[in-house]
Write a protein that binds this DNA or RNA. Sequence first.
RNA 1: UGUCCGGUGGUGUAAUGGUAACACAUGGGUUUUUGGUACCUUUGUUGAGGGUUCGAGUCCUUCCCGGACAACCA
Length: 555
Amino acid sequence: MTEDKQSLNFIEEIIKEDLETGKHEKIVTRFPPHPNGYLHIGHAKAICVSFGLADKYKGITNLRFDDTNPVKESVEYIESIRKDVKWLGFDWENEFFASDYFDQLYKWAIKLIKERKAYVDDSSAEQIALEKGTPTKPGIESKFRNRSVEENLDLFERMKNGEFLDGERVLRAKIDMASPNMHFRDPLMYRIKNVTHHRTGDKWKIYPMYDWAHGQSDSIENVTHSLCSLEFEVHRPLYNWYIEQLNIYPSRQIEFARLNLNYTIMSKRKLISLVEEGHVSGWDDPRMPTISGLRRRGYTPASIRMFCDRVGLAKRNNVIDVALLEYCVREDLNKSAYRRMAVLDPVKLVITNYPERKTELLTGENNPENSEDGDREIPFSREIYVEREDFKEEPQNKKYFRLAPGKNVRLKHAYIVHCEGFKKDEVTGEVTEIHCTYYPDSKSGSDTSGVKAKGTLHWVDANSNAEIEVRQYDRLFKTEQPDVGEEHFTEHLNENSLTVIPAAKAEIALANADDKQGYQFLRLGYFSLDKDSTTDKKVFNGTVGLRDSWGKKNN
RNA sequence: UGUCCGGUGGUGUAAUGGUAACACAUGGGUUUUUGGUACCUUUGUUGAGGGUUCGAGUCCUUCCCGGACAACCA
């Protein structure tokens, strides 16, 4: 009974049909990053789409670096891209570079020149822009448009050989200056850049433009479905035009809506400026929407893949609620994170009827969702720390279950305590110590006391613990769409996006925390070990808080 | 006053001429030694008009709204 036909998205429909009709035996997709920045969550969607579809339909995916503009590219970016794609859990069939095809592209350009479909233009960038017209006004033809084939060939070769300065000449396709599609108004194919390329060195002084390189690269690789974002929709006729003129393998470009997330930005240019202007500590700042930032924040590959799967695939512009991303990481981490206790804002609690010099080792499971993860030991003694927030002198709310004079609470994995009183600093009004008695027969797992406690608190032993630094993050921007509107996007930055807690108390087991393991600090949220940790002091990044159905209603 | 692409709850995505559904978010509840998890549950949706049809979110048409396109970027 596999009657449940799961609905396919529009690209899956196309692929399915192409496979069924025999148009393709096997699909080939590609992920073509421009190595001029770090990958972000928007790229993650593109990666999941191209790699994911190839996986689903038993095809292959190439990783192709679109390195046609050496001015903006760097090896650092190439390496980060490889790392991020792998980390997300994908593997490419081939690794290519657009620069692998520079020779072929050059030959094809000569072919077009000979067929009078391309020409060298000596006009300045300004002149060309001027003659291009506007979307509503046709352009006019360049005075260099009708040079002889011989002159074009000669000039083009000399362009290649470096006889001219940057910007002095370009090669253009000869199409239609009056076309309603701006990209048909004699698009540039090559421009001169006297710079060293990270892979081809000084071999080339001319570099192909995106439109002239991309479709041909797809075609050379026999890419069947070239999936890209909506903004390239207007490029598709040109993509097809080049392929038709060259009479080469007809790759098909299909566009889908890119991912947008609220409370953040996705523009590479703007992300670069956040890094360069020091608004964040780097590309991998845990507040960044970059893959490396999310990784450092404690997001798992599975959670990001789940997210990309759930946002869907369509052609309409969208803004995804970041709450969905947070949901996905909680969903994943809940199953795998080790539970630990840490107190971020400690206040001392003294159990007055507990023996002074005694320490017990209690047992707590690493993960209640998976008993195979085993247990860890937790020291417990007369003095412990609890969260300042978990004590109230005079609770107002009838449903308050935590510590207050006269109330019982369960200490997780330990005993039920009864609050007898507290000390406070008369000057500041700050509670300095909470006094409790415990019920000796209420020990976790063997409770025979019959005492009831509605609330359960996390705590840390005062004698034996690890001091840790905790970095808590909030959204980087205060507004849902920081790059929409009049103001500069940096004006929407949330100045409270980072809170450092230099000396939190953690249970001793966290002294041996592992950066490959996610942690849940009980009742607080998920945390992961940061690379800034030293052997003396561990640093933890707050990945995401626990869902909190109490805090929201009660401020 | 151009061309192209879109418009379904708050946010996304489905419904492929036949009862508008799913997830997140939101509100309520059950269970609980995490106010977590799990489970149950509430609210709320086809941009507007006209047409075709027994029947329209879906097809046709007019309009409205949103986005993309005028880098020697990709």
